[in-house]
Design a protein around this nucleic acid. Sequence first.
DNA 1: GAGTCCTGTTATCGTCGCTTACATGGATAC
DNA 2: GTATCCATGTAAGCGACGATAACAGGACTC
Lengths: 232, 232
Amino acid sequence: MDTRSAIIEAAATLLAQSPSGDVSTRAVCEAAGVQQPVLYRLFGDKDGLLTATVDHVWDQYLGAKRAAEKSEDPLRDLRAGWDSHTAFALAHPNAYKLMFAPALRSVPEAAEEALRILREVLERLAAQGRLRMAPDAAARMVMTANTGVALSLITRPTLYPDASLSVLVRDAIHRAILLDPVADTTAHDARTAAATTLLSSLDELTPQPFTPAESGLLEQWLTQISKSDPTD
Amino acid sequence: MDTRSAIIEAAATLLAQSPSGDVSTRAVCEAAGVQQPVLYRLFGDKDGLLTATVDHVWDQYLGAKRAAEKSEDPLRDLRAGWDSHTAFALAHPNAYKLMFAPALRSVPEAAEEALRILREVLERLAAQGRLRMAPDAAARMVMTANTGVALSLITRPTLYPDASLSVLVRDAIHRAILLDPVADTTAHDARTAAATTLLSSLDELTPQPFTPAESGLLEQWLTQISKSDPTD
DNA sequence: GAGTCCTGTTATCGTCGCTTACATGGATAC
DNA sequence: GTATCCATGTAAGCGACGATAACAGGACTC
């Protein structure tokens, strides 16, 4: 095998097994069966090795997941992207910390690719007129919130023992960046809700524009709408 | 001065000045004018020193800010809490990384206190019936999202150059955990919105329950409501 | 005044990231 | 065929680090 690949493989294995989340270049070299100067000629320094290792782990994970994240519904893909981001963090906590925690001074390519994939999905949503803001701004909101949840889950499991937190924050952010799809997906719900709202606040209208007879009729109609069947 | 305080003070100064975000125990001891074994007897190990240092910096910051964050409006306090959290991260990036990044194995008291303060504010909101979920769950959502934004801002300034991102995520999360105060604050808006919604979807009703004459009258009334003045 | 504990010292250990200096082996130039 | 070069590997070591063992003085108790 390629020496470079052997070193990366050894580093990835040791990193995954490391309780502290750290690896020594000596241990990597011993596991790969080479001496330290080889590592330093190939990767420059420890940062370079770790960056390459993180990119390798990320590529492996992404190769297995990529197929599943390209449906015809960008909203579905947006949710799947968030969930797989969180899943990657839980599956490879040490590699994830290196990707998004401030340990490395150079940003791994993997971190930028994650942001790029996210932005692509958001641009598809924007093309459908479902985005409340520019894809760039939305991508930053989603990515920062997602990394915050993922880092908290893997570094403070006692404080954040429930992974469903991820879905809660996900939907909160998504609701904020997406336009409410009420009109086309649940027109019936929107209509009954509107009728109910009007019914409950009609008599607060000042000055009251309707005669008692008109109000009675209007309320009767609104009640009829609010109780209509979801036939559409 | 107390030796312990002198060491913490020296560590805090060196930490704030450190470009890498790391400090060596040797440098701290030299700056404090003591030998290493003193440090290790007082703090156990380097982790203990850094934890104490982070708590010290946090206490200093909190002392200056605490007064301003206890108004009679818990929502105002909730926003102020988020903003001051982000401000602390930007003002003390290295200390903040130690607080919320996975570097330390022991959770600093400061991190738990931040969560406790947040939970108190949320419990006041819950007491007013303005919270959509349990204060604990809401606190976790707010805290994880806030740390994600703050960490991104201080560790990837090139990717996230605009601090207004913090406010965007803040309001997104707050909208998700808080009940919409539409009912009591903007009843007029809710009514006009409901009338507008009904107007736009009335003719989609199947089966159409109204005669053409009824529909015409209903639409006239709804239009009247949707254009009413906000007199309430 | 002997014992004890607190506080400080000197000197050193093992590990770390990283580098210098040197060896080997195969492709290329003449 | 030989000389040159360079890519690739090794052996040994440097300086800095976190952490510790062993010891020394001083205040206090009894």
